[in-house]
């Protein structure tokens, strides 16, 4: 299995690259969003799917990237490249800071502690109204969205950039989980006591996993702000902690490409359901119920269990 998974991942990225020329305008724009959000979900999967950390606080890390990049661009006047880096770092730092405290707990207590930190962050965004405009949010000026002469508000520019970010994230994730560090992470998920006896420090491993995961979230948040020109408190609400969990579970926790598949599927499920009926949520809910009955480990997870071993 070593080195496996690279081929299908490369195939997926190749298909996405072809999308730049082949997709109709609407789906082309959708894919930009999906790739940015899938980057977020891929990071979530590193903490949840591989290391077994069920966090409900990732919205905080996403928001750290979102506002980190926004304020870097507007208040500090940094160019978009630096703003992207600042947002990415903000996400990683936020995750590390939360991790230092929250990783004293495990299981459901970890879930609730991260949830509460994220709720405090969301409230803080509301309380900082003079800068964030709370729930209403802020629009990034066009000048903040021009990266080295490229206009990030242009779909033709955004798509390759989103693809580059997503590809980097996906390949890094593939490399990580195939590495020794990745196997230690999985060991934490499967049996923490055993890993400890083998000489690994669970706290450090989990903290590293959470920080990496937060870095992904920060990068996705920063890209979201710079590409779509908007930062608002609704993107920091608990919904944005539950969504990556849902995408990961639908696509397959602990699979490299699962988060992308889940994100893509949920996006088009909602989109398609809303074109069929005004009772959109009913259809989406039923689809989820059916899906989970037939694929309890997520799409890729269940396929892999059924013998399609080559899936990443």
């Amino acid at each position: 299995m070593r080195g496996g998974g690279l081929l299908p991942v490369a195939g997926l990225l190749g298909v996405l690259a072809a999308g730049q020329w082949l997709l109709p305008a609407y789906h082309h724009a959708n894919l930009v969003r999906i790739m940015v959000l899938a980057l977020y979900a891929t990071g979530y999967n590193i903490a949840f799917g591989y290391t077994g950390l069920l966090s409900l606080g990732h919205a905080l890390f996403f928001a750290a990237g979102l506002y980190g990049a926004s304020f870097a661009a507007t208040l500090a006047g940094l160019p978009p490249g630096a703003a992207l880096a600042a947002g990415t770092a903000a996400g990683g730092l936020a995750a590390a800071a939360v991790g230092v405290l929250a990783l004293r707990t495990a299981g459901v207590a970890f879930m609730i502690v991260t949830l509460m930190f994220a709720q405090a962050g969301w409230l803080a965004i509301l309380a900082l109204g003079p800068w964030t405009r709370g729930d209403e949010g802020i629009v990034l000026p066009d000048a903040a969205r021009a990266l080295a002469g490229f206009d990030l508000s242009d779909d033709a520019v955004r798509y390759p950039l989103a693809l580059a970010l997503f590809a980097a994230g996906l390949l890094a994730c593939l490399w990580l989980v195939r590495s020794r560090a990745g196997r230690v992470m999985v060991a934490m998920r499967e049996n923490e006591e055993r890993a400890r006896m083998l000489g690994y420090d669970p706290f450090r491993v989990k903290l590293a996993a959470l920080a990496i995961s937060g870095t992904y979230a920060g990068a996705a948040g920063a890209a979201y702000a710079l590409m779509f020109g908007y930062a608002g408190a609704s993107l920091a609400s608990v919904q944005y902690s539950i969504l990556p969990l849902l995408w990961v579970l639908v696509g397959g926790a602990g699979t490299v490409a699962g988060p992308f598949v889940g994100c893509l599927l949920m996006f088009y499920l909602i989109d398609y359901a809303s074109s069929l009926t005004s009772a959109t949520l009913l259809l989406v809910g039923l689809a989820l119920l059916v899906l989970v009955l037939f694929a309890p480990r997520g799409i890729l997870g269940t396929l892999r269990e059924k013998g399609v071993r080559w899936l990443p």
Binding site: D135, E136, D142, S153, D155, F228, Y230, S234
Partner: peptide, 14 residues
């Protein structure tokens, strides 16, 4: 709703 308007307006300009 204001947050929808503000979140959507950049897309209109694009």
């Amino acid at each position: 709703f204001s947050h929808v308007v503000i979140g959507t307006a950049p897309r209109a300009a694009e």
